[in-house]
Simulated scan of single mutants.
Amino acid sequence: MFFSDASIAALNAQEIAYPPEFFQQFANDVTVYEDDDIWVVDKPAGLLSVDGKTLKVSLLARLERANPAVKLIHRLDMDTSGLLIFAKNAAAQTHISKQFIERLPQKKYQARVFGKWQEVGAKGEISAPVRYEPTLKPRHIVDRDWPKHALTLYEVLDFEVCQGQTVTRVALKPVTGRSHQLRVHMVHVGHVIIGDPIYAEGSALTVAPRLNLHAEHLRLKHPVLGAWMDWESPSPF
């Protein structure tokens, strides 16, 4: 999603003008689970996870207006919707951040990609390094010479017809967490995620009004209780 300078200024001004009640209601609407240590929310598509260089409208900033103690742990792309976990104190933030470093949390996404990809029930992995390409800003690319590997597990769930086009619904599990990893891996296998404003073109872009990528499942250890906890968010597409 791209904005002109004038649009960014208008959005920033509107955000500042909202009353406190707006941010509390927003927090209530996106909350999936909350206790004294963690806050799991369902991020809407089209909203930054954290403030950008110019656009000061984000999930974190809005949650901070409702509870200044909230602390960032991980992010989703602006165009992606779904589950994110925040900490409510420094100890919880450190504990869960270490889990992510050790790749303990389990994340699953659902996506719809352009065209028919394999057969229903097919499973596999995509192992291809992903890096940022400054000449194609903001795109990332597969680079076999890049030293940081990227690994995604997948399962084909179903085939659908969307505005006359065949699309494939897939479950995606990122083992690594590279920026744009799932989006670039789908491009790499020849089936771009539909509605992707950065990577899709033609019918693959216009067949859906938004990026069809949603973080539907999150599993990790509670930083205080020590128990594994799971959260689900049904796909909105």
Rank of each mutant, 00 (worst) to 15 (best):
Q14L: 08
E160G: 02
R65Q: 13
L76W: 02
V70N: 01
D196S: 05
F114W: 15
R219Q: 15
L205P: 01
P134Y: 14
T206W: 08
R62Y: 15
V57N: 15
F159E: 03
Q106G: 05
D230R: 04
S233L: 04
P197I: 06
S97N: 10
M78R: 15
I38S: 05
I194C: 07
A90Q: 13
A122T: 15
R112I: 08
M229E: 15
G177A: 04
L11M: 13
A204C: 00
A9S: 14
F2A: 09
K88T: 06
A227C: 00
R169D: 10
F3I: 05
L220I: 07
H95D: 15
A69N: 14
G52D: 00
H74Q: 15
F237T: 11
H217K: 14
I96S: 08
D196P: 04
P44C: 07
R183S: 06
I194F: 09
V70P: 00
R169K: 13
A66Q: 08
Q93G: 08
M1T: 12
A61G: 15
V40F: 00
K123Y: 02
T135F: 12
S4R: 12
V170R: 06
R139D: 03
Q93K: 12
N12S: 08
Y109P: 00
K98F: 10
Q165P: 01
T54M: 08
H191G: 03
E102L: 09
V57I: 09
W231F: 15
C162R: 15
G46P: 03
P134A: 06
F86M: 03
Q165N: 12
K148G: 00
D145M: 03
H74F: 03
A90S: 11
S58N: 12
T80D: 07
D42C: 07
I193P: 09
P209F: 11
G226S: 02
P138H: 10
N212L: 01
Q118A: 06
E155P: 01
L157F: 03
L60V: 09
Q110H: 09
V167S: 01
Q99I: 07
D77N: 10
D143N: 12
S4I: 11
A45I: 04
D77W: 09
Q163F: 09
R131T: 11
A200P: 00
A87M: 04
Q106M: 06
I8D: 03
S97P: 11
G164C: 08
K221Y: 14
A66R: 10
L220F: 15
V207G: 02
R210P: 02
P134Q: 10
E133N: 10
I198D: 05
K98W: 13
